[in-house]
Nucleic acid binder design. Structure first.
Length: 642
RNA sequence: GCUGGUGUAGCACAGUCGGUAGUGCAGCUGAUUCGUAAUCAGCAGGUCGUGUGUUCGAGUCACAUCACCAGCUCCA
């Protein structure tokens, strides 16, 4: 048989392992940790019995990283079993940035315990244990795991399909049920660190027992580990929740409550700038602005379906179950309110498409553990909108929504960080969703066509749809790598009917319209959070709450500095003056810490010449006439330069 | 909601064995008038998240509760 590795080919008479073949060809280096055959990751110990093309993997390959980290998770499990023999193992996969193992243990893994476990893991690495694979028939596999008192493993085996190959990996005294593949010794995991221990439900179901999840990171060398740790520390410096408070954009207060941030003057200014921009842009694109109430009687939500599907998520004013008394609820969504605009009078096909936009404040009673800075809150304001359409307008209007969203993301500089998610319903969970399978198939079919037609590269999310229809979600990750929805565009074929929305078509027939629910820029709080993280608080000029700070060197320059400030302010720039008696170096430092785009240093020379010395964030200084700076600054704002 | 962690001045942090709360920065006042990352001096600032308990005595111990953080589960 012929074996091809990289560019070399060699003939073998008898079966041979990947390792031995690669060694013959002198392709084995310390970096090689696994291999790929027919797109499948395999261990170097994999035996080859037929003509095969092999790709060798190192830690640089995604699959190599995965294999490496998976082995690290086995080392973790082994260490835990050595120190806590009573602990029960469940699953321990590799993840994006490292690995974890979920463990059921009566002992809680405190930070000190993690240190001990980490120490034990390093010992296992030093022991350089050989990792061996073996298979067992189902009954023997169950017997082995029963003997080792691993009930979760027994359950996992029982749930495997009839024809599944049941494999185990053994390293020293430790054996784990695992599909593999793995490194062939524990010694290659030169650098590892346990990062945290948190709770996680067995099988991700909150009705199940909560296990302890130990997270770790692992690298082939200490340098790579340290580099990663440093990089993470840098990323966390951009954390909006810290930076946004430090820069006085927002704060929270105990007595107001969870998920209810206070926008401080600077944060409120940025949001105002975003809001004006969004509303103007929508106006240009034919949107009609509405302003609807923040609450309504429960009757409205009964029509929309929110009462049945979303009651837990609403703030209810009054007793929701006492039908004899009036009961209100704050709105969690805008849809049923904005539909009343359409329903205001009889509509013709000529009125469509009707594009309604609203800067809409919503209230959602999130569970107490869900809140996170400005990203997940209980009250937020969204650039909301609904498009009411004839069927023949759906494709073009959907594209219009997509174009608008892309324009917003592009202008903000967030576009390249986003990914798409096609959120569909789960046919097995009809209790969660309104409508029939036929209606869902139709809506999802249309959406798929539209996404494909617009060249959107999306992932599919099952059971992530809204209760009334499928969604296109535009996702973005925060500094912790956690993904959230920034923008959503949804097709709804159900609510129009519930609300009796109809228009007269050209044949004088009453027809139910399609509706697109969409946001152009998402909700202001979340977008602000991601902008803070994107720019590390140094907003582009057009969004900076303070754009220019004027810094007179001495008292005799204050009057001129003031005149400069007034001139710039009159032209619409946001300018502050630092007329304190501090030294110029001190004033510059303060301005830099507050991430103001431009500072204008003014002394005797500038005063005499009628100029300013402009220092930007990069520390570059140029002296120019006031009018020149003003013109350039206004241009930068107008162009929304990043 | 669940698991774990954290709450001391605006911010960053000390606070030993339970014995009447400290440092630096920021702030205020005065002096200094300075050319690109910290001028000098003085002053003020606290119900130690909140409540209850144990104790002669609680920042410190116990219980409860609130908020903040990470993760799970949910979600814009």
């Amino acid at each position: 048989m012929k074996i091809k590795i990289q560019d070399q080919v060699r003939e073998y008479d008898a079966p041979v392992t990947v390792y031995d073949a690669a060694k013959d060809m002198e392709l084995i280096t310390r970096a090689v940790i696994g291999a790929e055959i027919d797109g499948k990751t395999v261990a170097l110990t994999q035996e080859i019995t037929a003509d095969t093309e092999v790709k060798l993997l190192t830690f640089e390959d995604a699959a190599g990283k995965h294999l490496f980290r998976h082995t690290a998770s086995h080392i973790l499990a082994q260490a835990v079993k050595r120190l806590y023999p009573a602990a029960k193992l469940t699953i321990g996969p590799a993840v994006d940035n490292g690995f974890y193992y979920d463990i059921d243990s009566d002992v809680t893994f405190t930070p000190d315990a993690l240190k001990a476990i980490e120490g034990e893991m390093k010992k296992i690495v030093k022991e350089n244990l050989k990792i061996e694979r073996f298979e067992l028939p189902r009954a023997d596999a169950i017997a082995l795991m029963t003997e080792k008192e691993e009930p979760y493993k027994v359950q996992l085996i029982e749930e495997l399909p009839e024809d599944a190959v049941i494999s185990f990996y053994r390293q020293g005294e430790f054996t784990d049920l695992c599909a593999g593949p793995h490194l062939f010794t524990t010694g290659a995991v030169k650098a590892l660190k346990l990062t945290q221990c948190t709770g996680a439900y067995w099988k991700g179901d909150q009705n199940n027992k909560m296990l302890q999840r130990i997270y770790g990171i692992a690298f082939p060398s200490k340098d790579e580990l340290n580099a990663y740790v440093t990089q993470q520390e840098e990323a966390l410096k951009r954390d909006h929740n810290k930076l946004g408070r430090d820069l006085e954009l927002f704060t929270t207060v105990d007595v107001i409550g969870q998920g209810l941030p206070i926008m401080l003057p600077k944060g409120a200014r940025v949001i105002q700038l975003l809001q004006r921009w969004v509303e103007d842009e929508e106006q240009k694109r034919g949107y009609l602005l509405t302003k609807t109430p923040l609450m309504a009687k429960r009757d409205l939500y009964k029509i929309s379906g929110h009462w049945d599907h979303y009651l837990d998520g609403m703030f209810v004013l009054g007793d929701p179950y006492d039908e004899t008394k009036e009961c209100f609820a704050l709105r969690p969504m805008t849809c049923p309110f904005q539909y009343q605009v359409f329903l205001n009078k009889k509509r013709s096909y000529r009125d469509l498409p009707m594009r309604l936009g609203e800067t809409s404040t919503l209230f959602r009673n999130e569970d107490s553990g869900e809140m996170h800075g400005l990203i997940r809150v209980r009250q937020f304001t969204i650039s909301e909108g609904h498009l009411i359409l004839r069927p023949d307008q759906l494709a073009e209007e959907f594209k219009g929504c997509l174009d608008l969203a892309m324009h917003m993301l592009d202008t903000l500089g967030l576009k390249e960080d986003c990914s798409f998610r096609f959120s569909q319903w789960d046919p097995a969970r009809t209790d969660k969703y309104e409508g029939t399978p036929e209606q869902w198939n139709e809506a999802q079919g249309i959406m798929k066509e539209l996404l494909d037609a617009n060249g959107i590269n999306y992932a599919i999310g099952i059971d992530e749809a809204a209760f009334y229809g499928p969604k296109l979600d535009i996702q973005i990750k925060n500094v912790f790598g956690k993904e959230d929805t920034l923008i959503t565009i949804q097709i709804d074929m159900l609510l129009a009917k519930k609300f009796g929305m109809e228009y007269v078509d050209s044949n004088n027939q009453m027809v139910t319209p399609y509706i697109i629910h969409r946001t152009s820029m998402g909700c202001y709080e979340r977008t602000l959070a991601l902008l803070i993280e994107k720019y590390a608080g140094a907003f582009p000029m057009w969004l900076a709450p303070e754009q220019v700070r004027v810094l007179p060197i001495g008292d005799e320059h204050v009057a001129y500095a003031k005149s400069v400030q007034e001139k710039l302010s009159a032209a619409g720039l946001r300018v502050e003056l630092d007329d304190s008696s501090n030294t110029i170096g001190y004033k510059i430092r303060n301005t830099q810490l507050q991430k103001v785009p431009y500072m204008l240093v003014i002394g005797a020379k500038e005063m005499e010449e009628g100029t300013v010395s402009v220092r930007n964030r990069a520390g570059e200084t140029v002296t120019k006439p006031v009018d020149t700076f003003l013109a350039e600054a206004l241009l930068e704002v107008a162009q929304k330069k990043r």
